[in-house]
Simulated assay, not measured.
Amino acid sequence: MSWVDRARRMRSWGERRFPVLTELLARLASGNLLEAGTRLAAQMFLAAVPLLFAVAAFAPVGVRDQLQQSLRAMFGLTGASDDELTRVLDGSADDTLRETSGAVGLVLALVSATSCSRAMARVCERAWRLPKAKTRVSAWRWVVWLLALLFVVLLQAPIRDGFGAGAWLGTPLLFVVSTGVWLWTQHLLLANRVPWMPLLPGAVLAAAATTALAVTARLYMPGALNRALAQYGSLGMVLTLLSWLIVVCAAVSFAFTIGAVLAEEPTISRYLGRPDERAPDQPPEDTP
């Protein structure tokens, strides 16, 4: 028997013995997940940077201060990188310059915002092997998702601090909030085409991944950002943040895909329900 025949027999045996693992490996290999995560990270970065300038120009002082505290909590900013963030959000700059840069940032943020939402929706649709939803059904969902994401970012500082109790409560609370955010994200951007419960494995996995990355970011990112800023200036800081965002978005893409495969597994689907059960208010799908 040739090695090719042996390989085929081993593959057939594996498919019969471990169908979930076989399906998972096939889905991960064919889904271009790293590419999807990189595209999502780029779109999120293109939306976040001009939005930051818009917030600095037009948001009240309290909102700017809250955003600065949350970004510090997310990345553990210290030293030069924290000074750069302070300069961006500083309200003492020339009003005309701030309003001009803020208006440009707001226009750019609005232009790139739908691309960011569409990229996240496509990650969810690829995980569940669904076609694109109709634009008239999805357009308002893109806007709602972005506004909700901005709200969650603003709350990062108190959440991670456990609303004053400390990290011992903040870390579990961050995991619970993240699970809810990723569960709602999938349901919203999939246009109700998958019921809530089958989305739970992917939400839990995404929350676990992003919570772990949030904890490690506070240990790694401050030094990395300050070294990049010292060696390459603002460009180094941008590249470091983009690299971190690619890791986060890739982790979310993998988590959603793994969660979808697990939800389709017969044992788990008995408890969560079948993913292909259409929700009562599900809109019609576009043809692929």
Rank of each mutant, 00 (worst) to 15 (best):
A29N: 10
S81F: 03
L28A: 08
R98Q: 00
W13L: 13
A47V: 07
L235W: 11
A80K: 09
L21S: 11
D82Q: 14
D281A: 15
A224F: 00
L155G: 03
L67V: 10
E84A: 14
L51H: 03
W184Q: 14
W145K: 05
R227M: 12
L200H: 06
R72K: 10
H187Y: 15
P288S: 15
V123N: 06
L241D: 01
R227P: 05
L262F: 01
A157K: 01
L200Y: 05
A207M: 08
V20C: 08
R193M: 02
A29D: 14
L205Y: 02
L24V: 09
L229G: 02
L150D: 08
W196F: 12
L97I: 12
L272Y: 01
A139I: 07
C124Y: 15
L245Y: 00
R9H: 08
F151N: 03
E125L: 09
L25E: 12
L28K: 13
L225H: 00
S269T: 11
S30K: 03
A42G: 14
R141Q: 07
E265S: 15
C124A: 15
E23C: 02
R98S: 00
L272R: 10
G14N: 14
T267I: 09
P266Q: 04
V248H: 06
W3I: 09
V144C: 08
M1A: 15
P275N: 07
L188K: 07
V144N: 04
S269I: 07
A208Y: 01
F256E: 14
L149A: 14
L25P: 04
L85S: 03
E15P: 09
L213N: 02
L21G: 12
L183S: 15
W168Y: 05
W13E: 09
V4Y: 12
P288C: 10
E264K: 13
L106Y: 01
T257M: 06
A103N: 00
R118N: 06
F75H: 03
E84Q: 08
F163R: 08
G202F: 02
I268L: 15
A228Y: 05
L189T: 00
E35W: 06
V194R: 12
L28C: 08
S101E: 06
V177P: 06
V123Y: 02
F75V: 05
Q66R: 13
W244E: 00
R126S: 13
L149E: 09
V88L: 15
R274C: 11
G14A: 13
A250E: 05
D281C: 10
P158N: 00
L154I: 12
